[in-house]
Amino acid sequence: MTQRLKLSVLRHGPLLTTITIFLLAYIIGAQLYPAMQRPQAFFNLFINNGFLLILGIGMTFVILTGGIDLSVGGVLALTTAASAALLNLGVSPLVVMPLMLVMGTMIGLGLGSLIHFFKVQPFIVTLMGLFFARGLAYIISLTSVTITDPLYKYLALTPIYLPFFAKAYIYIPTLVGPALLVVAVYLAYFTRFGRIVYAIGNNEQSAALMGFPVGRTKVLVYAFSGFCSALAGIVFSISLLAGYGQFATGVELDVIAAVVMGGTLLTGGVGNVIGTLFGILIEATIISILQYNGTLSSWWTRICVGVLTLIFIGIQSGFALRKKKS
């Protein structure tokens, strides 16, 4: 029994560490800035960083297969620019949103196919995907385009008051990330697709010899990440009511850092989306601490995230080494 407990701790160690770091960061923040003790401050993490969570979920699946997707920020920006342009042309938002999701999925499908069928490194293919998508966004418009569509405005500005918490509210798009998280957990643990993703990340050749559809799964993982990027783009354009090629520059690296802090190994096969949620919450907490402080440069976010990620990787290798020994 103690052996079982030990194994279980070693298995879930990285996730528990991430959750602990998040709680510590939040408690420290709340001590320094009492404003952070209000429930609303916690919900703001989701309101402000919902798009990061959505990107992170897609990215987690990609990284679990041992790949990487650098195109997410580009596809997000392209989605905002394209939706703004289409909405201003008078196209219904009920057409624009599905259209954007199809576009994101197709881009991911294309990148995934290049990676699988032409055996090109995911790093290169998705970097080109980033250039392509961001470039296209600037072709659509060189400047920021404001969205005036009434549905978008309604979604952006209507708060939903939460039960149990006085005066705490979120917006409708804030729900997208947590809802997607539930879907992702189901995908990862209760479908053959999800389990094969883990198997591929452990050993692609073994997975193929076990008779799994390795190629199809890999392509689908990038398509899913493309879908998530477009979904994040829609959420992003709703919250800013604008579309612009320069939105979310460098966000792909923030997302990768969050996924790694969440306990997913870049080599694939180990990790989960719940960890990614907490990785993103850690980043969001650091950002909000700096905002409450108000005097520190926002670059401190990057420094903190950098240091934390490195510490985290150290802890993770510690667990991995101990696991090998036991």
Binding site: R195, Y198, A199, N202, N203, S206, A207, M210, G269, V270
Partner: peptide, 10 residues
């Protein structure tokens, strides 16, 4: 040729 990260049952 098995995957060591997933469970024996899987």
């Amino acid at each position: 040729n098995l995957c060591t990260n997933i469970s024996v049952a899987e």
